[in-house]
Design a binder for these strands. Structure first.
Lengths: 337, 337
DNA sequence: GACATTCATCGAACCGGTTCGATTTGGAGG
DNA sequence: CCTCCAAATCGAACCGGTTCGATGAATGTC
């Protein structure tokens, strides 16, 4: 059942059926109704491949995700789900492509095979070869996170440097003098992962500005690493009274370490950072933290991408999100001095 | 740069280029080399839409996921990532479609627009309209979880009934007489969600067989609900000495409730169930539990789907996985009587 | 040297839509 | 009654591949 079959049954030409469906040229009301009747009766749906070939666009967006081996975090997951929903609101579908930078057959297929009209690239590095490939391919794309020459490209990011800086200031206001940053994993930092780099920079700079002693430590993205890492901090730097973190996955371990050490939050120790709301409220006690607004980022990313697809010559735009730091119960005045 | 351009530059016909690329007819070695040279030089990639139209297949699989509003669980996420990777190994891409079960535009587009060669349907209900739609559309599909008339369809599932039954037997062997099942949410049970129904059935039946008193309670999929739900159990049924669960999201709350009540695991209380390994090992103490093998399920689901796509007349196959219950430290002999 | 056979390649049709220019139809205006 | 114009519709070309039957050249056989 193709468009020719519909045309034959209605007794019109294929082009008339096409115009009736798209509305790009006027078709008499009576004809439209007959066409719609037949279509409903036969359950006809236009073939997406044929339409894509003729129109030169696929109504599909590519979403490049980290490979399964890099255990996706909770935030990433909800970002993916949100992207799919926002795209659906634009009547677009989402094609997934796992890419770690290496075994990139999938990335190749998606980018060079004109399978998609645009791409959203998650988890980019400060210098990322995939960004170069996309740039030279001419395919519209938006990155989550931004690269060095950010002005020329389209991106959405969370202002890790600014947020972490504000967290440190908050701790300084409460009288803390010895603070630590629990960052993401060694590997991520080594590979030039933006959020980790910027969090570290914002942390050290601001702490120095307030005359605090500050250390930043890397920690793998899992509870066990969080436990080990935090116990080491408590042992080696007993003077530390507050921690800032962007490592959500390590939090359960941090909590256990605090509990084992008999430290009460916030009486004996303050904890804050950039943590998705749903994790922050489930912590014990609920965390004073800035949200990672995955849904909002997805909305913005798709908006920016659709804008560029509609008008490739539009000037690059971007969004640096700085969600508010919500005061909950995990930070308090420093009791030690 | 299309196939005609390549053909012109090499000085052969379009069909020769096509055959050289697909290998479906012999082409002289010299010609193949010249074609490959030109292709490499121009960076040519065949247009996926044109190929799909001509071949009648898209080399794309559809993956129907729960909508973002239904917060995806950790296990679901890693399942999605695994499906994408397995599909990539088959040189196929994955198109995502969020579907809540009703008349979904996205689901419609994917299913009826010949956008995909086959579909994997996650989180199906015991009676699911989407299964009927797919069946009548003739599109190959595999479900995660199985419906009532399971013999006629293709599916992959975890044997929740059997696994929960074995968990209960394990607790019976340890001398427990009063047990509780912490099930998934009310809504899921009400809508006929297979794993919840089967877990409940296996639980009650087996407990009865051992002469235990057994209660199953529903609990929303988040830590707060887990806490509230478990505190209520401890208060209303103080005789209970062991719990079985399939609700991973509620676990942190259960842990806190146990801690608040001053109950030590496994000395005072035993806890087991079907829990993804990565969560089970991070629990304190590590949980005796059956894994939810998301990666293996993804592999099997894609295998089954590709098999059906290759030969639509192949007899339906399915896989009911019963991963081993790994003994860790969360279950022990009953101290009360 | 005539003929059958194989190998490499070509040309055209086809997949199912969209789109452009051309054609038909009907009504208004002179 | 003829002309003109706009509305509605048609026919053909096109998007970029795949595939089938045909053609021509080279090889092998007797």
């Amino acid at each position: 059942m193709n468009i020719g079959e519909i045309a034959k049954r209605v007794g019109v030409s294929r082009s008339t059926v096409s115009y009736a469906l798209s509305g790009k040229r006027p078709v008499s009301a009576a004809t439209v109704r007959r066409i719609n009747d037949v279509i409903a009766e036969l359950g006809y749906r236009p073939n997406a491949s044929a339409r894509a070939l003729a129109e030169g666009r696929t109504r599909t967006l590519g979403l490049v995700i980290p490979p399964a081996s890099t255990r996706l975090t909770d935030v990433q997951l909800s970002f993916v789900a949100s992207v799919v929903e926002v795209a659906a609101a634009y009547d677009h579908d989402v094609l997934l492509s796992p890419s770690g930078g290496d075994h990139d057959r999938s990335f190749d297929r998606v980018v060079t095979g004109r399978r998609v009209d645009g791409v959203i690239l998650m988890e980019i590095l400060l210098r990322d070869p995939r960004v170069d490939r996309l740039t030279s391919s001419g395919l519209p794309f938006v990155t989550i996170g931004h690269v060095a020459d950010s002005a020329a490209s389209r991106w959405v990011d969370v202002d890790y440097a600014g947020l972490i800086s504000r967290c440190v200031r908050h701790l300084a206001d409460l009288g803390h003098e010895h603070v630590v940053l629990i960052n993401r994993s060694d590997e991520l930092v080594a590979s030039g992962y933006g959020p980790a780099m910027r969090a570290s920079a914002g942390f050290l700079e601001t702490a120095e500005g307030f005359g605090m002693t500050a250390h930043d430590v890397c920690c793998a993205d899992d509870p066990a690493a969080g436990l080990a890492c935090f116990e080491q901090i408590l042992e080696r730097r007993p003077e530390v009274t507050a921690a800032v973190t962007i490592n959500e996955a390590a939090l359960p371990g941090v909590q256990r370490a605090l509990h084992r050490a008999g430290l009460d939050v916030p009486r004996d120790f303050s904890l804050t950072g950039v943590i998705a709301d749903r994790l922050a409220v489930d912590f014990h006690p609920p965390l004073t933290a800035a949200d990672v607004p995955a849904g909002q980022m997805a909305q913005l990313a798709v908006d920016l991408l659709m804008e560029q697809i509609a008008d490739p010559s539009a000037p690059p735009r971007h969004a640096l999100l700085a969600p508010p730091i919500t005061l909950r119960s995990s930070t308090g005045a420093c009791r030690r001095s």
